[in-house]
Amino acid sequence: MMVKKKLRKIMALVGLAFAAKALAMEGKDEQVSGKIHESRYHTPFPLQKGGEKIDVLVRVEETDRAYGLYLIFVLKQNWPEEKKEALYRLYQGYIAWREPHKPYPVKIRLLIDSVDLKNDVHIDRLVTERSLKFSRDADNGAETWYANALFMERLPAGVYRIRLENAVAVPEIDFMTLFAFEKDNRKY
């Protein structure tokens, strides 16, 4: 019984490695690293020029909670108030409730594909609307992260290839932006 279980695990790992390699070879201009990232993964994703891309593998564990893919606006606490307000206006759409709502300038193409053979997930979306999720302090209070959800749904346990492409240049975003992959563990 134990031998069968170990053999199944080895076969699954070999299949996963083969599938990841095959997906990496699929597109000549799109290379995915072999590293599989776990929840609480963050990486820079600038938006100023347009055409910026991210291509990563992530692991979703068996859970009753959703996993989220987020675009994070990073506000530095030592900035002048005008710059803080400009970032918040991009994130929220307004500062004072009476002023006109600023349209969301970000347009991101999101592709999610299952890598392992036990799931058949393919998601292709163009994210063009705000989806405010959370803010939190980072770097010992020197930064505040404002997160917009790009995707926040339950996925079957497995490994997924996540590809993001910034569809338009947003030169007014002259601050750091991050892509984040996290399991939702907030208390509601």
Rank of each mutant, 00 (worst) to 15 (best):
L126V: 05
Y146G: 10
A167Q: 14
Y94V: 11
D124Y: 12
L110P: 01
D139N: 11
N166D: 15
M152S: 05
S114L: 08
A142W: 04
I108R: 00
R154D: 01
A147M: 06
R98E: 09
D113I: 04
N140G: 05
N166Y: 05
P156K: 07
D139I: 09
D120T: 01
N119C: 01
E165N: 14
V115D: 07
Q92E: 13
P105I: 04
A147C: 14
Y88C: 12
N166E: 13
A147Q: 03
E153Y: 13
Y91P: 14
V121N: 05
A167N: 13
V159L: 13
R125W: 15
I108W: 02
V115K: 06
P156L: 01
A96V: 09
I108N: 00
N140D: 07
Y146P: 11
A96F: 11
P100Y: 13
Y88D: 09
L111H: 03
Y146A: 08
G141H: 04
I108Y: 02
I162K: 01
L126T: 10
V159S: 10
G93V: 08
H101G: 09
Y88F: 14
K107F: 06
A142E: 11
E153A: 08
N166V: 09
E99N: 09
A149C: 11
D120C: 06
L110G: 00
V106K: 03
A149R: 01
L164H: 06
N119E: 05
L111N: 00
E165V: 15
L164K: 05
D137A: 10
K133G: 03
H101D: 12
D137M: 12
L126D: 08
K102P: 02
L110N: 01
R109I: 04
K118E: 00
I112G: 00
L164D: 06
S135P: 10
I112P: 01
K107T: 06
R136C: 10
V127K: 00
Y88S: 11
R109W: 03
D116N: 06
L132M: 05
W97Y: 07
L117P: 02
M152L: 15
A149I: 04
L155K: 02
F151N: 07
K118R: 02
L150F: 04
G93M: 13
D120Y: 00
V115C: 13
L90K: 12
L164E: 10
S135N: 11
R154H: 08
P100K: 14
V115P: 05
L126S: 09
I162Q: 06
S114C: 12
L155P: 04
A96E: 14
A138E: 12
I95D: 13
L90F: 14
V121C: 04
A169F: 07
L90I: 15
R98S: 07
G141S: 00
D120R: 00
A96I: 08
D124H: 03
A138V: 09
A167I: 08
V115Q: 07
L164Y: 06
